[in-house]
């Protein structure tokens, strides 16, 4: 199928290979430069005071206490809402759904929901949770919005984890005269748990960084207090970053950089936990 000068063809092959490698490493280098830039910019502001102060008009006094605590509240409630519902949906689709047309429909629907821009979820949250259910701009409203946003991710990864549980285990359990829920609870869920946890952590780490939906539901108001209950107003780390980054002054950009370092550290830690869980289970299998 191919003719011509072999020497030249080998040269092309080598060049192509070098090109692909260069491009890959160059883009990784670009990202490394960007990350180095943000750390460098933010480093000066990163101290205990930054973590324990409220935002302020004066850069020297500004901190991320309310944002950090707000993110903590937000993520805890998001996990509380989305994990049980997402795992339950995955169990239904993998273990219970009999009518394949219905489950196929739900499946396509979930796949499409995963691609809906996050700002649309923000509008949904604003109209449904903030206004219709009159939850206001509270932690609960934010968490519910976030939950809808990450549910598709949780469902999809949990389904994969459940599907990876060998069918022979289910068969063995059923052959003992047990019901489906007994089989799921005692065998399927424990075996799928590491995979589910990994997916949940990755989904939550996505929720930590999501900004647009929170902007939409109005979390961008000035909040210089720590929420004390789920119905309190809140701000969050990415919101604080957006706020600082959209100001013209250089100092605020550096504050944004410092907050980004904190945000990325939190996300990196969560990812590391997910990787460790995955690694552990791969080894014990």
């Amino acid at each position: 199928m191919i003719s011509g000068n072999l020497e030249k063809r080998h040269k092309i092959a080598r060049a192509f290979r070098v090109l692909c490698a260069t491009v890959t490493w160059a883009s990784i280098a670009v990202l490394a430069v960007l990350l180095a830039h943000v750390s460098f910019e933010g480093f000066r502001w990163l101290d205990l005071g930054f973590l324990t102060s409220f935002p302020s008009r004066f850069p020297e006094q500004a901190g991320i206490k309310s944002a950090l605590m707000g993110t903590l509240w937000l993520i805890s409630f998001t996990a509380l809402f989305s994990v049980p519902v997402g795992v339950a949906a995955a169990i239904y689709l993998e273990e219970y759904a009999e009518d394949s047309r219905v489950s196929r429909f739900i499946e396509v629907n979930i796949a499409n929901l995963a691609g809906v821009p996050s700002i649309v979820y923000g509008i949904l949250g604003l109209v449904i949770f903030v206004r219709f259910f009159a939850l206001g701009r509270s932690v609960v409203a934010g968490s519910l919005t976030m939950s809808l946003l990450i549910l598709p991710v949780i469902i999809i990864t949990a389904r994969e984890a459940i599907r990876a549980v060998p069918g022979s285990i289910r068969q063995a359990a059923f052959a003992l005269g047990t019901t489906r829920w007994q089989v799921v609870r005692a065998h399927v869920l424990p075996s799928a748990l590491p995979g589910i946890m990994t997916g949940v952590i990755l989904a939550l780490s996505r929720a930590i960084g999501e900004t647009a939906p929170l902007v939409m539901i109005g979390a961008l108001t000035y909040v210089a207090f720590v929420p004390e209950g789920p119905m309190d107003a809140f701000t969050a780390l990415p919101i604080q970053i957006f706020n600082w980054a959209s100001r013209p002054q250089q100092e605020f950009h550096q504050l944004a950089a410092a907050a980004i370092v904190v945000l990325l550290t939190v996300m990196l830690l969560m990812n590391a936990i997910a990787v460790i869980i995955r690694h552990r289970t791969e080894r014990t299998r």
């Binding site: 060998p166 022979s168 285990i169 068969q171 063995a172 359990a173 059923f174 052959a175 003992l176 005269g177 047990t178 065998h187 075996s191």
Partner: peptide, 16 residues
Amino acid sequence: VRRRIGMVFQKPNPFP
């Protein structure tokens, strides 16, 4: 039915 009629499979499939 399965409580009264048990089954042993071709490949050993103990629970983990």
